[in-house]
Design a protein around this nucleic acid. Structure first.
Lengths: 315, 315
DNA sequence: CTGTTAGCGCGTTCAA
DNA sequence: TTGAACGCGCTAACAG
């Protein structure tokens, strides 16, 4: 059954009939035990709830459809501590492959991943030096594009709003710093407002509120993500601050809501579903020894200019 | 190791030292094979992406924390067809327990679940006749509460907006019908607008738009869920229809965004995280033969009145 | 191409 | 209380 091409047609059809008649379904535990290889694909991500990872997960599940492999989600809860231990335990299951979020693994975690003896794909970021394979986008560069857009639209006192500053958010902040510094518009102590708490609409409103208190003349914000951006937009509406005329807002990720809020929200689109899908394909290709496949993929990003930064027209 | 109380203290400590020294970690495949029981908890849901199920999943994962069990997600994609087949294949893994969404399983699927030989919990709804155990809320009754609230606020031409009418949405619609009919306010042909497409903010705007075209004098809408409600709110803003004065809006689920939009959104809170958490506890309790635990739990709901239906004040 | 056989690492049973 | 032996259902390797 594992290699039908090595069997005579007659035997094959007999086998198929028997499978049918008995309702035979393989026992995955026995397969794993005998072959020292499971049909499990480990997916190590900080959160299943966050919309961003939910999209990735959807790509992974669709990519695995009818492949015979099953995803198993390992939730790191944004804590790098313990990641190595989680991976070590997971390694005993001898997974067929591993997808892991980001590039900030500890040295020991990288070690464990390398010794896992299966394909490993890092996702959501780019790196010249992946553990094995990688697909994602350059967060810092994407951050730069967002801020550059604000400057082009004529904004000058540009703030940064960020909740739960995970490594990717840190890199977007670095991109923000690159551009405002180059333009001589930097004022970190007053223009940057972050919180260690998780992302939410409510948190976006809070951050906007805090930033306005600290720096009343801010005229635009680059937000960590769309949740924060929408919360900030609502806060402006509550205070009668007109967007985009008096305040420009750029989000990140381009969730569905960005295209339909009032005003619509400028954002940076990231290709999360595609990333999940292709990460799976990279692994399956390797497992089946198919002709070479790219091992280091830049999934790119796309600035989506919308009303929340249309200052020219709004003035 | 499985029953330390039957072993002399001396041997126990020797075993523990050996475990330490060898870095021993049990092999789940071998455990499953030998015992004909895996430590896998099946979670059968229509979607991982939908915020509603993401919250449930978070409860499940938190409930499983340090229990030694692992969740395995089976995605039905809202298709009842094939559910039975999925379950049958899943049954070969001999899961420790199963959590399954809703109460609309086919007779054969119910059959398969009953023969699974492990605890089964249906979630998200109530029923006097569960397959085994159940926890959730009465969707129809919750729908009634939402519409009753609109009537109390003085709205009279009350519409219903729904995307992807899954069985739960159908029951909320039934609740809507109960109340508008009892009040003599029903006009199904003109006041109900649904779409088979998935829920999204954009879809909410579309549905609102279609409803206004079909029934221009509608003065309030009960929306299938908060995504649709927020999309509808944005559509009203785009058209200059004032909410709540000219149009009342009630959502469903009470997502984070409902409390912070402008105006804030009246919604019906459902306890999804708690439901996931407790569903797991019901299963673990049974597996450990602990003293009896409730088998049929009504998780309830809570109307959250907010600005989007404050007609009294707005007038 | 086909049939046979030895473990994979553990739970379970039985004897000591 | 401990130790030894068997077999879960399959893969892989080998001999026919």
């Amino acid at each position: 059954m594992r290699s039908p091409e090595l069997v005579s047609p007659a035997t094959l059809s007999k086998v198929q009939k028997a499978v049918e008649a008995l309702g035979y379904v393989p026992n995955p535990a026995a397969q794993a035990l005998a072959s020292a290889r499971s049909r499990i694909l480990g997916v190590v991500i900080p959160s299943l709830t966050n919309q961003i990872f939910a999209d990735l997960v959807r790509g992974v599940m669709d990519g695995l459809e009818n492949s015979g492999y099953t995803p198993q989600f390992v939730n790191t809860r944004y804590q790098l501590t313990g990641e190595e231990e989680l991976l070590r335990i997971f390694a005993t299951q001898r997974p067929a492959g591993v997808i892991v979020s980001g590039i900030d693994q500890s040295d020991r975690a990288r070690q464990v991943l390398r010794q896992m003896g299966c394909p490993v794909v890092q996702v959501m970021e780019t790196s010249p030096d992946p553990i094995d394979m990688i697909i994602g986008c350059d967060q810092r560069d994407a951050g730069r594009a967002a801020v550059r857009h604000l400057i082009e639209q004529g904004y000058r006192r540009i703030g940064f709003l960020g909740a739960l500053m995970d490594p990717r958010a840190q890199r977007r902040l670095a991109g923000y710093r690159d551009v405002v510094s180059a333009a001589g518009l930097n004022d970190d102590a007053r223009l940057i407002m972050t919180s260690p708490q998780p992302t939410s609409y409510t948190m976006g409103g809070q951050l906007m509120s805090d930033l306005l208190a600290q720096c009343p003349d801010v005229d635009a914000v680059f937000c960590n993500n769309d949740d924060v951006a929408l919360g900030a937009l609502f806060e402006c509406q509550r205070r009668g601050i007109s967007v985009p005329a008096r305040m420009g807002i750029v989000g990140f990720n381009d969730l569905d809501v960005a295209a339909c809020s009032v005003p619509t929200l400028t954002s940076v689109r990231t290709h999360r579903y595609q990333t999940g899908l292709q990460a799976v394909q990279m692994i399956l290709t390797r497992l089946e020894n198919l002709p070479d496949h790219p091992r280091n993929v830049d999934a790119g990003y796309q600035l989506m200019p919308r009303q929340s930064t249309e200052r020219m027209i709004a003035l």
